[in-house]
Design a binder for these strands. Structure first.
Ligand SMILES: [Zn+2]
Length: 121
DNA sequence: ATCTTTTGACCGTCC
DNA sequence: TGGACGGTCAAAAGA
């Protein structure tokens, strides 16, 4: 980026094309840097790992979506808190919790603090 | 030249 | 001890 950021980030960001589908997820107003992507066979879903663009910000974001199925089941899990205000949609909302799980799709964006991935095997 | 995404490899933990 | 699983790193490539 640098010089010209004309393209900017669209509110919709294509996560990936697993089987030819284009998944779109809402941006929180923060900038994330992807640092990994893996397929979890346990749940049969793709998982992407994001980290806050800031150096001092230890905020992390984890996104997983079904590898198949055109359903919009996209799960976004927020970890840690941001140390800087969201220059965009502040609203003080952001993520005040250490763990925040959002599920998009048929289910409403109900906020429920889930206990770390799946316990035990 | 700077920065991000991509992908495979590496590592810690569990059993 | 080593394999399965999950999470992160790091090299290369693209923008
Ligand atoms: Zn942040």
């Amino acid at each position: 980026m640098s010089d010209n950021e004309e393209e900017n980030k669209r509110e919709e960001r294509d996560v990936d094309r697993a089987a030819g589908h284009r998944l779109v997820l809402p941006d929180d107003g923060y900038e994330w840097r992807k640092y990994g992507q893996k397929f979890i066979q346990n749940i049969g879903k793709f998982r992407s790992y994001f980290r806050c663009h800031r150096q001092n910000c230890k905020a992390k974001k984890r996104v997983e979506w079904s590898s198949r199925s055109e359903a919009d089941d996209v799960r976004v899990v927020y970890e840690r808190v941001h140390s800087h205000p969201s220059s965009q949609a502040e609203s003080s909302s952001g993520n005040q919790y250490n763990l925040y799980t959002q599920v998009f799709g048929n289910q409403p964006p109900s906020i429920s603090p889930q206990p770390r991935t799946n316990p035990s095997s």
